[in-house]
Design a protein around this nucleic acid. Structure first.
Length: 879
RNA sequence: GCCCGGGUGAUGAAAUUGGUAGACAUACCGGACUUAAAAUCCGGAGCCGAAAGGCGUACGGGUUCGAUUCCCGUCCCGGGCACCA
């Protein structure tokens, strides 16, 4: 064994050894399948160029779990791949004249090298990249099946339109209402798109959450709210148009307030708005105004609420009174019916709107136990459960639920409404007017319409020679790509030039890892084995709590229902989910003359702080001139604030970086990046190395005489500490998925070991315990720092291999304790402590507590009115 | 704007089911070793106070014998909001 800890040497040799052994391979042999399987999946990265600390954190967690479960004897699958389609590749192409394919593949090669250097036990034989036709062909194949079933359909959708570049923009590319490249004011525009009918699975996606005890409550709640099931009433306001009776439909969860409706508002895109605008130039101008700006909900919701009367009236379905019809910029065409009934007295938003435009406000609901007074009127938005109707004619006095029922029944009799369950969830628009994505396998024929590409012609391969300019859709300018013949009638047809949303690729990759080499089928029998009960542990950023995780759950159900031969797909894809907190870092930028922000990497910036450590300014290292400090945000390509782990790996080695990132905080907490403390992680590993080195060196000498009888208790205490640490690390790795406390426990154990009498440890019994302790420490740390763990274990036990060793097991005998220390509280305040036998009865504990000096002093001779005993913890004497 | 989290020493954090607040580290201060520095080792330390003691988990209230933990309200920070991935 080397005297000095040299990470470069031991990491190289450990990695070579693992590669030669193919130690990370997930086995499909019959013997391997007799062991329990553990499918440990980390969210695959977008190949943006280099790893950042968020990736390191994610994969360090995954690897610690994968290695721990291997040590429990399980058949572990830890795969890796690349979410390789996406916008950044096109941006790089525009900026640097590199084709997206070449750029993406170079990034993959570099990042794969970084992952290997970090020593993650990934089964590289299963690697996949979504931009590979061998992957996306199956997506196209599934698309044609879903299209045939009607689960994919076409309709108009609203997008951000840049009128200068004549191109569709992503929400991220709309900055303060303008196109990021052209600077032109962005408009909403309707275009035909393909949609996936996720709403058909809304109920199952909602109910499925109840079957996932291994998911964080927070994530399930977010998904539940996103699906947004609400039971209400769909009702109609009749109106007359061109002599015909028409109905304007709205949905409400508060039908009990129907008698308080004072206006109805429709979205600017609603057909009724367009009709009213025909002979109303002011309204037409307002509707035009509403088209400005992007489609992002966050942007629309932040707008000032504006509206305009149409001059039209609809009829109240129950009272028959005319109700004015308005257009409102806050009414969204994509939600529900694109129209809302407004009850200003009982809806905050409606109230603000009514105040602003002088519309009437009419109270029709009051709270139980409160007296309604028309004189002292104020809006009431209270709990539905306490509400009853007032001012509502025959419905007066009815409680919320009864009023809804009565009104729904009356509406149903009139043919003007019925109870309805509605979801906030909308169908998933999957068409993208972009190049670097999976081509949509549809042919447009003038005679036959939209015709799916036949299986024999799949995959529709994305040409890699497109010219990327940032204006328009590249594929739509490539006749070689889009010119085709209709497979049904044989006439000329035009190939669809939109590509699929990249969320589609990431919605099923976890299934393909089971059989990435199958060229004849999307999935096969190996899926039934690896996915039985779902992925055992999925790990990824909390930012994916809704979209990715909901789409993946949905897609999994689609594939289950497609009933692929031999491949049994479970109802839910991810049995256990660990949502990692984001690694966040400050952002820095400069503004160019036209107001565009140029984001600068934190590594190129020096921050000045005041005496309390708060940033007061920053300068660019290159020119020493000031830069602006933006928010502290998740590391991302677009804000250029990712921190590359490479310099730290080069300086300290992979183990130090892994130890540091896992020790810094619990995995689900967000972490503001700082490398303060990396040095400390390195120091700990060096100390660990030295401790084992000293043991191995000393062990060569003759042991001292046996332990004196009065000293055996010290060894028993040390051994108890060791086995408590084993219990703790097993619990942390296996149940809590919290690594910082597991690492701290081993550090604490080594501190205790260091403070133990050296002469005692030099005895025969002492040496045996020291060996047991150090071997166990190497194995307990192995999942986190496998290279040094492997080296130290081999040094202690020549020829042994930590990678195939079992995780230490606690000895119940060693854990036994004779005495317990209990806290003494007097009136809830801590006043002392005392010892009792571990098996003491409550009466004995109480007697011992009352006998303490502290009890005598603070009770002042009074008796305790109340004695609270928490076994193993404390006694509280309440005077 | 809406939905979901978070806020504990100078810093990262711990306290797992309502029961010793600050484990384990970082930075700092003092000491040992050294010609010196680095490395290493030993010791100190929430705040106020000489001590006794008091105060203390963003802020304000509440429940409880007992609250970092539960409830109500406020402020700040982060994530998501359907075309960033």
């Amino acid at each position: 064994m080397q005297e000095k800890y040299s990470p470069a040497d031991i990491e190289q040799s450990a990695q070579t050894r693992w590669q030669e052994q193919r130690a990370a391979r997930a086995l499909d042999t019959p013997e391997a399948r007799r062991r329990p399987k553990y499918y440990c999946l980390s969210m695959f990265p977008y190949p943006s160029g280099k790893l950042h600390m968020g990736h390191v954190r994610n994969y360090a967690i995954g690897d610690a779990l994968a290695r721990y479960h291997r040590m429990l004897g399980e058949n572990v699958l830890q795969p890796m791949g690349w979410d390789a389609f996406g916008m950044p590749a096109e941006n790089a192409a525009i900026q640097n004249q590199v084709p997206p394919a070449a750029w993406t593949r170079a990034n993959i090669d570099y990042m794969r090298g970084q992952l290997r250097r970090l020593g993650f036990s990934i089964d590289w034989e299963r690697e996949l990249a979504t931009c590979d036709p061998g992957y996306y062909r199956w997506e196209q194949w599934l698309f044609t099946r879903l299209f045939a079933k009607g689960l994919i359909y076409k309709k108009m959708g609203v997008v951000n339109w840049d009128p200068v570049d004549e191109t569709v923009l992503a929400n991220e590319q709309v900055i303060e209402g303008r196109g990021w490249r052209s600077g032109a004011l962005v408009e909403k525009r309707e275009i035909p798109m393909y949609y996936m009918r996720i709403t058909a699975y809304a109920e199952e996606l909602l109910a499925g959450l109840e079957t996932l005890p291994g998911w964080p409550e927070q994530v399930k709640l977010m998904q539940k709210n996103w699906i947004g099931k609400s039971v209400g009433v769909r009702l109609a306001f009749p109106y007359e148009q061109d002599g015909r009776q028409e109905k304007l439909w709205v949905f409400t969860t508060r039908a009990d307030t129907l008698m308080g409706v004072t206006f109805v508002a429709v979205a600017a895109e609603h057909p009724l708005a367009a009709r009213a605008a025909r002979d109303n130039p002011a309204l037409a101008a307002f509707i035009e105004e509403c088209k400005k700006g992007g489609v992002a909900e966050a942007e629309i919701a932040a707008l000032e609420k504006k509206g305009m009367p149409t001059g039209l009236f609809v009829t109240h379905p129950l009272s028959g009174e005319p109700v004015p019809l308005w257009v409102g910029n806050y009414v969204l065409m994509g939600y529900g019916e694109g129209a809302v009934m407004a009850v200003p007295a009982h809806d905050e938003r409606d109230f603000a709107f009514a105040r602003q435009y002088g519309l009437p406000i009419r109270q029709v609901v009051a709270a139980e136990g409160e007296i309604f007074s028309a004189d002292a009127w104020q809006p009431w938005y209270g709990e539905k459960t306490r509400a009853y109707c007032v001012n509502s004619g025959k419905y007066d006095g009815l409680a919320h639920a009864d009023a809804v029922d009565a009104i729904a029944a009356d509406l149903a009799r009139l043919g003007l409404g019925e109870k309805k369950t509605q979801y906030r969830l909308r169908d998933w628009g999957i068409s993208r007017q972009r190049y670097w994505g999976c081509p949509i396998p549809i042919l447009h024929c003038e005679t036959c319409g939209d015709v799916p590409v036949p299986d024999a012609q799949l995959p529709v391969v994305l040409p890699e020679n497109a010219a990327i300019t940032g204006a328009g859709s590249p594929l739509a300018k490539m006749p070689d790509f889009y010119a085709a013949t209709c497979p049904q009638c044989g006439k000329a047809a035009r190939r669809e030039t939109d590509t699929l949303d990249t969320f589609v690729e990431s919605s099923w990759y976890f299934l393909r890892y089971a059989c990435p080499d199958n060229a004849n089928a999307m999935l096969d029998e190996r899926v039934s084995y690896w996915l039985a009960g779902g992925v055992d542990q999925y790990i990824g950023g909390i930012e994916h709590a809704i979209l990715h995780l909901l789409y993946a759950r949905f897609f999994n159900k689609l594939i289950r229902d497609a009933e692929l031969p031999n491949a049994r797909v479970p109802d839910e894809p991810f049995r256990n989910l660990l949502t990692q907190g984001m690694v966040i870092a400050p952002t820095f930028y400069r503004e160019s003359a036209d107001g565009k922000k140029q984001w600068l990497p934190p590594a190129d910036v020096t921050v000045k702080t005041d005496e309390r450590g708060r940033p007061v300014g920053a300068t660019l290292n290159a020119d020493g001139q000031p830069v602006w400090i933006g928010g502290t945000e998740k590391m991302s390509k677009s804000k250029n604030n990712g921190v590359d782990p490479q310099p730290l790996i080069d300086q300290y080695g992979a183990d130090t970086v892994r130890l540091f990132i896992l020790f810094a905080s619990p995995p689900d907490q967000s972490l503001e990046w700082s490398d303060a403390g990396v040095e400390g992680a390195y120091r700990f590993l060096r100390r660990l190395w030295r401790t084992v080195y000293e043991y191995v060196t000393n062990a060569a000498e003759k042991p001292a005489a046996t332990v004196a009888a009065e000293k055996t208790a010290a060894l028993r205490d040390l051994r108890r500490k060791l086995h408590q640490t084993i219990v703790k690390t097993r619990d942390d790795y296996g149940r809590r998925l919290q690594f910082n406390t597991a690492i701290a426990a081993v550090m604490e154990l080594l501190n205790v070991y260091d403070k133990t009498d050296k002469a005692l440890l030099a005895t025969e019994e002492g040496r045996a315990l020291a060996r047991e302790l150090l071997e166990a420490a190497a194995l307990m740390l192995f999942p986190v720092v496998p290279h040094i763990g492997q080296a130290l274990y081999a040094a202690l036990k020549p020829g042994a291999d930590a990678a195939s060793a079992a995780f230490p097991e606690a000895d119940p005998e060693a854990l036994r304790q004779e005495n317990l220390a209990l806290m003494l509280q007097i009136g809830g305040k801590l006043r002392g402590s005392f010892h009792v036998a571990a098996d003491a009865s409550r009466a004995e504990i109480e007697a011992a507590a009352l006998a303490t000096e502290a009890a005598q002093k603070y009770l002042n001779g009074q008796t305790a009115k109340k004695v609270i005993i928490v076994p193993g913890r404390l006694v509280n004497l309440v005077p």
